[in-house]
């Protein structure tokens, strides 16, 4: 699974800036590396540049300056379609195709890649079971599913072509607390099994502490610091401290110690 054990980063930002077409800067001076198999959580408030950072990885956005490297290759020089097919992408709104059944949604990329129908079918079933769904929903349409089921399908779809990298943009943000908790557990279980390189965007400190190998704290388009969950909890810096005040007591118990 891990073809990249020499410690070379899977994703690397080198002094990256992003500016909107109207000239408004959204991101500046971003330098960060994501190591193979780790879950880097981008934590920050709305407008801090988290989603922008994510979209620079699969080139839904292109940097105004600086370089983004995926598997050692400059994304600017890569074939954008091939780049994206090697990266799973999950968003908060899920974005399932409403006119396709669950099976067709999950199997779309393998189908487009020309896999034979039987193999696509088998892969879809495997994925649905993997994300904890009943195979009976395979023939349903997205509007017939609950929010939690939809998001599971979204994750299954992102994993369909077995990408080594997974980008997740507040995937559990729109779910109720119990479903969110379930899916976070599921994520940790899956991650232990699949060992993908994950970049995960959230504004929820609890979620960050629970899922992250490392937390990249962002504010106003800049990366403030990168800390492990344990380091984050011990930090006396003003911004981490502000987050801990905002999210209150009991954070200690949720933090990912790297032993789960």
């Amino acid at each position: 699974m891990d073809t990249n054990s020499d410690g070379r980063p899977v994703i690397e930002f080198r002094d990256v800036a992003y500016v909107l077409p109207n000239g408004q800067p959204l991101l500046a001076g971003l330098t960060v590396q994501v190591q193979p198999g780790e879950t880097l959580v981008l934590l920050g408030r709305s407008g801090s540049g988290k989603t922008t950072t994510l979209k620079l990885i699969n080139r839904l956005l292109t940097p105004a300056s600086g370089e983004v490297l995926v598997n050692g290759a400059h994304t600017a020089d890569s074939d954008v379609i091939q780049l994206r097919r090697g990266i799973g992408y999950v968003i908060q709104e899920v974005g399932l195709f409403p006119h396709y059944t669950v099976e067709k949604n999950v199997g779309l990329v393998p189908r487009i890649k020309g896999w034979p129908a039987a193999r696509v079918h088998q892969r879809v079933e495997e994925l649905l079971l993997m994300v904890g769904l009943d195979l009976r929903i395979a023939q349903r349409y997205p509007h017939q599913l609950s929010g939690g089921q939809r998001q599971r399908v979204g994750v299954a779809r992102a994993l369909a072509a077995d990408p080594a990298i997974l980008l997740m943009d507040e995937p559990f943000g729109a779910l109720d607390a119990i479903t969110r908790d379930e899916l976070q557990c599921e994520f940790l279980r899956l991650q232990q099994r699949l060992n993908k390189t994950v970049v995960f965007v959230t504004h929820d400190l609890r979620e960050a502490l629970r899922l992250a190998s490392r937390i990249a704290l962002m504010e106003s388009g800049r990366l403030v610091t990168v800390l492990s969950p344990a380091e984050f909890l011990r930090s006396k810096d003003p911004l981490p401290a502000a987050y801990m005040r905002a999210f209150g007591a009991g954070l200690d118990s949720v933090a990912n110690r790297g032993d789960s």
Binding site: I81, Q82, R84, R85, Y89, G95, F97, L108, I112
Partner: peptide
Amino acid sequence: VDPAVVEAGRGMGLT
């Protein structure tokens, strides 16, 4: 068409 659907499709590597 829901922009989220288009973005998901583009992010998946659809041409």
